[in-house]
Design a protein around this nucleic acid. Structure first.
Length: 389
DNA sequence: ACTCTGTCTCAAGACGAA
DNA sequence: TTGAGACAGAGT
DNA sequence: TTCGTCC
């Protein structure tokens, strides 16, 4: 999933588009999150022992709730205002990819049975992870949980990442927290990686700025989308032998996928058949999303303590004191936040990593302009771009 | 010689007691 | 599943 | 920090 090799390419060819940020810098900020992605990760890893997961008394899986609850608490405690976006129905083009995944799951199921049969614990764990699938019930339970926590939930008509990007374009959130680089292809002005990385290893968050990506790569938005398609995305197969680096130089030389295809030596490089790059392009450029003016006001309210107790403790067998303690943390954070009148300091407009930013001037990111193409080179670039390699 | 792609591997979430 | 890092081998 | 447990 995502765009193959894009992170590395940006690191090498557009280092200026990335900026490290401290966790604390997100205090007061609205952040969009792809919920389904998280749920998936929680199901794979939370409380897993072999093919066992956390379950309620009645045997229903609760790993996703455990993960979602405590992660959301962490975000709220850090003063963030998360909006969780749930995936809608996949676009037609992705069906093939999804079918493949589904097949792989089937295979994994067979392997899993075999491993159980053979009593191979390692394999049981490995294969059972591969059989993980996010169901409608997982999604619904997480929505219920989040609403009880006072956190807004949004249903995307189609791709969650595309909807998140739209929220950011419309200025409803500061950025989107994801590990999936195709959010950038969807044009999110800001993408934040490693925001919720395990507190144990605490790497800094990394922000990618869409405008700077285009500027540094010297591409128009359309060209960047074409680049991503050539690198390899979920919607089409890729051209074997063309990776991120060659894709970039080809796009630069020929301007578009059409140009690249016309110039490619078809003896050397096999164009996949079919290669619906135009459709893929359309999905990135005009994905099925809800625009900001049709989205109900996002609200962050106080958690419904008793509702949470009913749900998590009574229904799902969570430990009551843990839940109460966590709700306390949320309330404590809320108190701190509200007395500060955040919006005036931390509006979606801009950031400043004042205190600790040593380098990195922050070019104002006035959004609003849909801009896209033509990078108007106004002021001269900043001096040396930080690092080189 | 150098660069690039494709392959393989690994780990993966958060809490809290010790 | 994902991403990252290490490696090999093919291409330039 | 490490590691067992969360449900």
């Amino acid at each position: 999933m995502g765009i193959q090799g894009l992170t590395k390419l940006l690191g090498d060819a557009a280092p200026g588009c990335m900026k490290e940020q401290k966790f604390e810098n997100y205090f007061g900020r609205k952040i969009a999150v792809d919920a389904s992605m998280h749920i998936y990760a929680f199901l794979v890893v939370v409380g897993r022992q072999g093919d066992q997961m956390l379950t309620s008394e009645t045997g229903e899986v609760t790993s996703h709730l455990q993960g979602m609850f405590f992660r959301t608490v962490r975000m709220l405690e850090a003063g963030m205002k998360p909006v969780f976006v749930f995936e809608g129905k996949a676009p037609e083009l992705k069906r093939e990819e999804l079918a493949k995944r589904s097949n792989r799951r089937e295979d994994a199921n067979t392997e899993l049975e075999a491993a159980k049969e053979a009593g191979n614990a390692e394999d049981v764990e490995k294969y059972s992870k591969r059989t993980v699938r996010v169901t409608r019930e997982h999604n619904e339970e997480c929505k219920r949980l989040l609403r009880l926590m006072g956190v807004p939930v949004l249903e995307a008509p189609s791709e969650a990442e595309a909807q998140c990007a739209q929220l950011c374009k419309d200025g409803l959130v500061y950025g989107i927290s994801t590990e999936d680089m195709d959010s950038l292809t969807f044009g999110t002005p800001k993408l934040i990686r490693h925001l919720m990385a395990p507190s144990s290893q605490k790497p800094l968050a990394m922000e990618f700025d869409h405008e700077l990506v285009l500027k540094e790569l010297e591409l128009t938005e359309d060209q960047f989308i074409d680049l991503c398609i050539l690198c390899g995305c979920d919607y089409t197969a890729k051209i074997s032998g063309i990776g991120a680096v060659r894709a970039l130089s080809l796009i630069k030389k020929h301007g578009s996928i059409e140009g690249v295809l016309a110039a490619l030596d078809s003896k050397k490089y096999q164009i996949p058949e079919p290669f619906p790059y135009q459709e893929a392009r359309r999905l990135f450029k005009e994905p099925d999303v809800v625009k900001g003016d049709q989205i109900p006001q996002l609200k962050w309210t106080s958690p419904d303590t008793e509702g949470l107790i009913d749900f998590l403790v009574k229904e799902k067998t969570f430990a009551e004191d843990r839940i109460r303690k966590a709700v306390e943390r949320i309330n404590a954070a809320k108190g701190k936040a509200s007395q500060g009148r955040l919006e005036s300091f931390f509006g979606p407009a801009k950031v400043v990593s004042s205190t600790m930013g040593k380098r990195k001037e922050v070019p104002v990111a006035a959004k609003g302009k849909k801009g896209s193409s033509g990078a108007a080179p106004k002021k001269g670039k900043l001096g040396g771009m930080g690092k080189k390699k």
